[in-house]
Design a binder for these strands. Structure first.
Lengths: 220, 220
DNA sequence: ATCAAGTCTGGAACTTGTTCTAGATTAGCG
DNA sequence: CGCTAATCTAGAACAAGTTCCAGACTTGAT
């Protein structure tokens, strides 16, 4: 086989290095490696779309993506890492999609709420996938912090985009943090059947008021 | 042995029935059963206080509490059930403790924030235990909904107590929901090392503003 | 072309949550 | 007291995440 290796490197710890930050730093990945990685993520999302968290079984992911179990673990050091990476992947999609149709609301709060509800509706279309990703995210321990943080940053970016504020104040950033907290926790209550879709909507709208409360132009 | 059975019953499914609602409905438990249950919860909390979630291993809990593994599973149908029950137990303590010294703040928001920070400091004293309980709580699936709901109600009660409002408005109840979301999620970010104690404090204070924003007397 | 290092594979092995079984023990009842 | 059902115990067995290993394949460099 001719064209196999493109990117050379002395640094070659695929998993640890690669998983740490999706695209940015240190991805000296061969084409075939990149392809494997995609196959794995695809299989993960596919299995998750059926049975949710429990249905994503490492042996099955390995088989579906035509990779040995050991290799799967080299790319993603645990099931949680795999699912969080899957979420990163899905979030990028989402962000792209959302960018295309910016929210219409008058106030920043309305736009953020609208954006989150749009994301929520997308999740409702694949509730099992949502289950797998969100459960992994909140169950992640310290060893997954970098990846979870990346997801958090991506989420923050989406919200700030929706706000349409170039220079958010510290208070607004605090509000955004709280919104993220609420978003995650509300999703969990929905996924575990303890809150209805309507209730999640209310919670999102409620927390989004914090934005206008802290907006430099709207008040004070 | 003479005095063993006190409460008689035809309904005797310990686990399912008993776990469903801590004290209220259907606890026809023998003294020895009650003692076993306590031993189990105690062992659970003890193990959790060391290594956190992972250190609570069902075999060890069974051994520590001098109960067969099968019996442990009869009392608590899964590790998650066990840890959520442990949390219920701890929460009751906490509520009792908090009741004694009501918060001093001027506004409802201040009092709630103060109360939550007090709870937070208590958790900081046993970070591993906190880890076990909170992780279990957010990882719980539908099969644990009733128990998780009970924890949620207890938390709501604590917050409403701190507010000192007898008849909260619907908006205030919404605010309380959001506060709970933030509380749980902020704890998780702290436990997984992604947020500092100071950051959690800020998040709590930020979300608590929602209360005054919706207070019937403070505004409008 | 060949070598050394790194990677991938198939599969066994280990860990811990969960389930199951057979045989004591205990509880409630006549 | 003696019976029957429920409960408890010890321990095997099973499931899925994770780790290990020996051998084959790739890669990058000499």
């Amino acid at each position: 086989m001719p064209a196999e290796a493109k990117v050379s490197a002395k640094v070659n710890k695929v998993a640890k290095v690669e998983a740490r930050a999706a695209a940015p730093a240190s991805p000296p990945l061969t084409e075939r490696q990149e392809a494997r990685r995609r196959r794995i993520l695809h299989a993960s999302a596919q299995l998750a779309s059926r049975g949710g968290f429990d249905a994503v079984q490492m042996r099955e992911v390995a088989e579906s993506s035509q990779v040995a179990l050991g290799t799967l673990y080299r790319y993603f050091p645990s099931k949680i890492h795999l699912l969080v990476a899957t979420m990163q992947d899905q979030l990028e999609h989402m962000h792209g999609t959302l960018r295309k149709k910016p929210p219409q609301g008058e106030t920043a709060a309305e736009r953020v709420a609208e954006t989150l509800m749009r994301a929520f509706r997308a999740l409702q279309r694949e509730p099992h996938l949502a289950d797998a990703m969100v459960r992994a995210l909140t169950f992640a321990d310290r060893s997954v912090s970098p990846e979870v943080d990346q997801v958090s940053r991506q989420t923050t970016a989406i919200i700030l985009d929706a706000m349409g504020q170039e220079n958010p104040t510290p208070q607004q950033l605090s509000a955004v943090r709280v919104i993220e907290h609420t978003w995650h926790s509300a999703l969990i209550t929905w996924l575990s059947g303890r809150a209805s879709i309507a209730q999640v909507k209310i919670d999102i709208e409620t927390v989004c008021r914090l934005i206008d409360l802290t907006a430099p132009d709207t008040r004070k």
